[in-house]
Nucleic acid binder design. Structure first.
Length: 484
RNA sequence: GGCCCCAUCGUCUAGUGGUUAGGACAUCGGCCUCUCACGCCGGUAACGUGGAUUCGACUUCCACUGGGGUCACCA
């Protein structure tokens, strides 16, 4: 088995799309499984759409996800540079070789001429796709103007078939008669996708090209290029795309598609990787995978060939599962930034925060949920309007006062003795638990849903518990009884 | 339209000629219960259609239908 060198080559256009993350992930898993090299390359030859900020967003997204790269921006490597716009000299060199060997030529046709040809083609009403046939393909002369603008085109063969065995799609055959003389280099020296991609993969020693299957149309031309250069053709793996729930190409209109949005929504990198990996790949009946398991179990054989639809609910479920696998300390650590966002400044080792985690864990899916579920331990209660109206009413005031009195005597102030004492008192007085539970819950937490009453009391501590119970009783007593 | 890819529950999938077609999410019941969750138990739900091959097709082949991609001096 030869060395594994794979790459992820995003074009920086604003955010790192989760569909792109999946292709990056599969390549990354493949590299890590084989202790190979994972290369990150920035394809920024479209100057109109690429920006510095976008590149930074891509890098930050990859770092946050933990998809570390062995060669690329920020880490270097001996096959760089790893940003296409800095590799222009390399492209020029290879383009020169192709012209020399007769595999490419200078085409002086103007955009207008091409547009006219396209229009003429459409007017013929033919069913075939448009292919520009440059008059310069078979000319050996050059325009009189030595400064004439030209692009470099590939002299594509018209005979024969180009085939490859795809790692996920199997054998693919494309008739060369469908090829056209695609452009390699623009007048300004910027390569077009097919050329830049091939030269980079070639010079970077990439052994397997993993990408979305929307690129399958590009593979035959690229193979032709490798052959023209006398180079070894890498293996290709075209993975199906991630679609929106309605089957369209997944975009901002359908869901959050940027990686960093998920970070802000309180998702875990491992959960994202798990969900994305499992969308289009499987390992028997297993649904939840750690990062290590993914590396260990990934296989191209089990990458499906059908496009997967994005399912927000399953994604959330996977996220929740991963959150619950974390230790209390880790959950606290991840939650701290989200607490800060809602104005609560605590440290990850805060004893109160740590105590709440076991009770909040089964009730939370994201870290936003965790933060929202513990806020009342750190600041005064904010009453949910409906809960207050329904439970903090005069009829419940007395019960709250008595509950406070009963609870005051409990020592130690932990959930088991609290539970036993309160239940005994309720039984003695023949009061059903549910009669006091909700008023007490609202009094202590401000809301109608929370962890168990005695768990809340334990974390709150005696002082705050009594204060909130009694304050709740006062509010209840003072509430106007709706006149009959 | 040309070229290319794809086709099992609503969704993600298991399945590689003989299965009561399995799991997960979602959904619907129920249990647990101080609320909400978690958890547990159970239900509904799928092989697109038509041919061919075969003793036998979800599984192989072909056609059709449907979906997607792509036809740029974007990637």
């Amino acid at each position: 088995m030869s060395e594994v060198r794979v790459r992820f080559a995003p074009s920086p256009t604003g955010y790192l799309h989760i569909g792109g993350v999946r292709t990056a992930l599969y390549s990354w898993l493949w590299a890590r499984q084989h202790e190979g090299t994972f290369i990150l390359r920035i394809e920024d030859t479209d100057r109109e759409r690429s920006t510095e900020e976008s590149i930074e967003i891509v890098l930050e997204s990859m770092r946050w996800l933990g998809l570390d790269w062995d060669e690329g921006p920020g880490v270097g490597g001996d096959r760089g540079p790893y940003v296409q716009s800095e590799r222009l000299a390399i492209y020029a060199e290879y383009a020169g070789k192709l012209i020399e060997s007769g595999h490419a030529y200078r085409c002086y046709a103007t955009k207008e001429q091409i547009a006219a040809a396209r229009e003429a083609h459409q007017k013929t009403g033919t069913k075939d796709g448009f292919r520009f046939e440059s008059p310069w393909r078979d000319r050996s002369d050059a325009p009189e103007d030595p400064n004439a603008r030209y692009v470099i085109r590939f002299r594509a063969p018209h005979e024969g078939t180009t085939s490859w065995v795809d790692q996920v799609k199997g054998t693919i055959d494309i008739l060369n008669s469908t090829q056209q003389d695609f452009i390699l280099l623009r007048p300004d020296g910027m390569p077009l996708y097919n050329f830049g991609c091939v030269i980079d993969d070639l010079t970077m020693g990439v052994t397997l090209v993993g990408r979305g299957d929307d690129h399958m149309i590009n593979t035959a031309p690229q193979i032709l290029l490798y052959e023209a250069l006398g180079a070894r053709v890498p293996t290709f793996a075209h993975m199906p795309m991630v679609l929106a729930p309605n089957g369209e190409k997944l975009s901002k209109r359908h869901a959050a598609v940027g990686v960093l949005e998920y970070r802000d929504m309180g998702y875990l990198p491992d959960a994202i990787l798990n969900y994305l990996a499992r969308l289009g790949w499987s390992h028997g009946d297993q649904e939840i995978f750690t990062r290590g398991e993914l590396i260990e179990k990934f296989s191209w054989d089990h990458v499906g060939s059908t496009a997967g639809r994005y399912d927000a609910k399953k994604f959330l479920y996977v996220q929740a599962e991963h959150l619950r696998m974390l230790s209390d300390e880790d959950i606290a650590r991840w939650t701290v930034p989200f607490l800060a966002k809602i104005g609560i400044e605590v440290q990850a080792d805060d004893p109160v925060l740590l105590k709440t985690i076991p009770y909040v864990r089964p009730r939370a899916e994201t870290f936003i949920d965790v933060a929202a579920a513990v806020d009342y331990f750190f600041r005064d209660v904010e009453f949910d309007a409906k809960g207050k109206r329904k439970f903090l009413v005069p009829g419940n005031a007395q019960a709250l006062v008595r509950l406070a009195d009963v609870v005051e005597a409990v020592e130690p102030f932990t959930k088991e003795p609290l539970d036993a004492t309160v239940k005994a008192w309720l039984e003695e007085n023949e009061i059903p638990m549910k009669v006091v539970a909700q008023p007490a819950r609202v009094a202590m937490t401000g809301r109608t849903r929370s962890p168990g009453l005695f768990e809340v009391m334990e974390v709150l501590g005696k002082e705050k518990t009594l204060a909130r119970l009694r304050a709740g009783a006062e509010i209840a007593a003072a509430t106007e009884t709706p006149s009959a």
